[in-house]
Write a protein that binds this DNA or RNA. Structure first.
Lengths: 184, 184
DNA sequence: ATTGCCTATGCAACTCGTTGCATAGCAGGA
DNA sequence: TCCTGCTATGCAACGAGTTGCATAGGCAAT
């Protein structure tokens, strides 16, 4: 279970409320680790009970109060312990790949618009990554350790999107060829 | 929920027992959709109750009996319905990426051997994919629709592994540079 | 001889993750 | 004015997924 650890890393990079964490998971972190606000609130409460994080109530005007969490010493040492354990290879749940193989038993042409939709989504995400890179890392020669590591993870995201985009174009070409060969 | 659909596709490609399906999920399918034998047995029973699959008991000598499942008409039409629904973008749970960002708050050098382990795993998987491609698709000019689609998914797997391999080399270079810059 | 692994299925208990809903004040547009 | 959407947190119920264990015969190696 790594949601705790992902939250700890995010809080070490910057303290924040459950709501803010949920938004971070929708953005930068969310593309290599997803979580809903429900999970995050639940885990934060458990982590607070375990002394991994400390909470501070912050009153705001014009908005509901919030609880700002920050990583505690116990959380930091738990993170260090976890870093020394081996992790499993990443699990992939690639529903679209299942659909592509399923198309053999139905109409391959019917899948084209769906694949195009995914292609466009990945293209948009790649653009957002590249834009975020420009904004957050304007000078790549002057990064501290934390930023270096954030940037190498971002590079992974960028390469993943580029690769996926090229693959989805390949998938589209294949589907179009099959649709032309055997019109239903 | 797509485990049902992944199982249906696998059974349409070839009927098999729960055990055999579990092994297929460990191999080809398993890299874009994971499932344990527990899940598979449970879902198969539900699918049988819903008339999506039909089971046939097969006695074997020297081995326990097995129940060979095959996709039924109702399952096939359920699959066709599902193909026409949009799917969510794939979810990624990339624990190693969390660790890389976590390394900023501990010792980056301590992560090197872990990343090397992952790198070697991905290299081995890429080799297995390429070997499987040679074996299962010796003549790329003579494929039926089902094989065309299997192959385009395999190409995706191969490209994913290549990209991951290159990225992990980038990560290793970054970690080594950080370790040299600031020795702990 | 015993140990360990492979085939083949399954139960029980648990944790993880999702979905729907609820509260509640404020801001902005039709 | 009403409706939608944002900030901020939370409960309850459900479904998905994991882990540990159990059975049970056969096969291969130590």
């Amino acid at each position: 279970m790594a949601l705790e650890h992902a939250i700890l890393v995010s809080l070490l990079e910057r303290p924040g409320s459950g709501y803010e964490l949920a938004r971070r998971f929708d953005r930068s972190i969310g593309r290599f680790w997803t979580a809903t606000h429900q999970q995050i609130y639940r885990v934060l409460r458990r982590m607070e009970a375990d002394g991994w994080v400390a909470a501070q109530e912050v009153a705001q005007d014009g908005r509901p109060d919030k609880k700002v969490y920050s990583a505690a010493a116990a959380g930091r040492s738990a993170l260090a312990d976890w870093l020394r354990e081996p992790v499993e290879p990443e699990t992939v749940r690639h529903e679209l790949a299942v659909k592509i193989r399923a198309a053999a038993f139905d109409d391959p042409a019917a899948l084209i618009s769906e694949v195009e939709r995914h292609r466009d989504g990945h293209a948009a995400l790649l653009a957002r990554y590249l834009h975020g890179e420009q904004r957050d890392f304007p000078d790549l020669t002057a990064l501290d350790t934390c930023q270096e590591l954030q940037h190498v993870v971002l590079r992974g995201g960028i390469e993943y999107e580029r690769m996926t985009l090229a693959w989805l174009d390949d998938v589209l070409a294949t589907l179009r060829r099959l649709a032309a060969d055997r019109p239903s």
